[in-house]
Design a protein around this nucleic acid. Structure first.
Lengths: 196, 196
DNA sequence: CAGCTGACAGATATTGAAATCTGTCAGCTG
DNA sequence: CAGCTGACAGATTTCAATATCTGTCAGCTG
């Protein structure tokens, strides 16, 4: 039952997150992870081919947690599409801002990881725009939205609101007036979806 | 007549740009600038209190060149506001993309400079959003746009299109499909301005 | 024999001493 | 005497020696 039960990929990922939290992305080594688990670093390489792969897996896990939070909103059939869209964008902004504000160092760590992770971030973005596409399509079906291609429009919505979910803007999310700016952009976008 | 005429702030700024182009932001020193001008570095400090002030002045000059390019479009009274808005956004995107694509090293240099320049960038953004506000206000007067506060709406337009002018996205401006994404975002925004 | 260890080679990071740079200023020069 | 110079102190950067890390693999262990 002790941590020395069996060495799984999951346990390595948890230990890696902990090491990253403690040491930061620059100083966190595979040797540190192995030490935290009480094994030799060779064992870690049995589960992850390279250090980069290990870091990418950690990043993917972290990003997926956000995606899953938002997936619930897409499924809320009882709310109309515009409300779902507003709730989804709000949840995305809040989730990112909460993570950035609550533990800035860990967030900075993940910003470094997302920069170096080749596939994880594009996949995450594809995931999120796919969710958005579902909402846009629902709006088209209901007749409340106007668009030629829901996927293209969803991507446009995602990019237009980037200032409120793209990590590169994280240090402006606590500035006074951000809420008003968020409302202005979302209103503009929602009106763009409605009107032809 | 020779470069040894008189030492003006303008001549120092030109020499600094040249030194930055050659050496890059990390290695460009005040001593290099002085050497390029054939003076001692003490003379440079007569015109700029610190190295940071010198770099900020260079940055400001560079940013102002873009602002001035765009100011002409705002003044084109013969085109209707929507056309002016589209032309303005297109000119902004093209100008930034041209600079980023034509001389990537110099652009990277300016990205470093804009990060460290405290006032220059906010001023530049204020400048641009002020131009946008003029266009939005013209649209309100003409009755083609709908908005409660032109300044707030202009800022929203600026932020919503950030992906196509904010330097932090520069390395995605040459990717295939960017044009389509640009069109989608601008269409969404313009429709948002029109519809109530 | 499946899974782990630990020594190893090459790559990367750390360190501290030496070199360079920033910003100042007393004095030179035209 | 307005403007420039160049030596200087303290801060920063460079560089090379040293230490650590990554990724592999032959062999150990349960």
């Amino acid at each position: 039952m002790a941590p020395s039960e069996t060495l799984t990929a999951e346990r390595i990922l948890e230990a890696t997150e902990e090491v990253l939290r403690r040491h930061g992305p620059a100083k966190a080594t595979v040797v540190d992870v192995a030490r935290a688990l009480g094994v030799s670093h060779g064992s870690v390489y049995r589960h992850f081919r390279t250090k980069a792969a290990l870091r990418e897996a950690v990043t993917k896990r972290w990003l997926d947690r956000t995606s899953q939070e938002l997936a619930g909103i897409v499924a809320e059939q009882e709310r109309d599409p515009e409300q779902r869209l507003r709730a989804w964008l709000r949840a995305l902004f809040d989730a990112k801002r909460r993570k950035a504000g609550h533990d800035p160092e860990l967030f900075a760590t993940y910003m470094v990881l997302t920069r170096e992770s080749g596939e994880a971030v594009p996949e995450h973005i594809a995931d999120l725009t796919s969710q958005l596409t579902d909402i846009v399509r629902a709006g088209l079906d209901a007749g409340t939205f106007t668009a030629t291609d829901p996927a293209v429009t969803a991507r446009a919505v995602f990019q237009a609101t980037g200032r409120f979910h793209d990590p590169c803007y994280a240090d402006e999310w606590e500035a006074p007036g951000v809420e008003a700016e968020y409302e202005a952009v979302v209103d503009l976008v929602v009106r763009g979806l409605r009107g032809a």
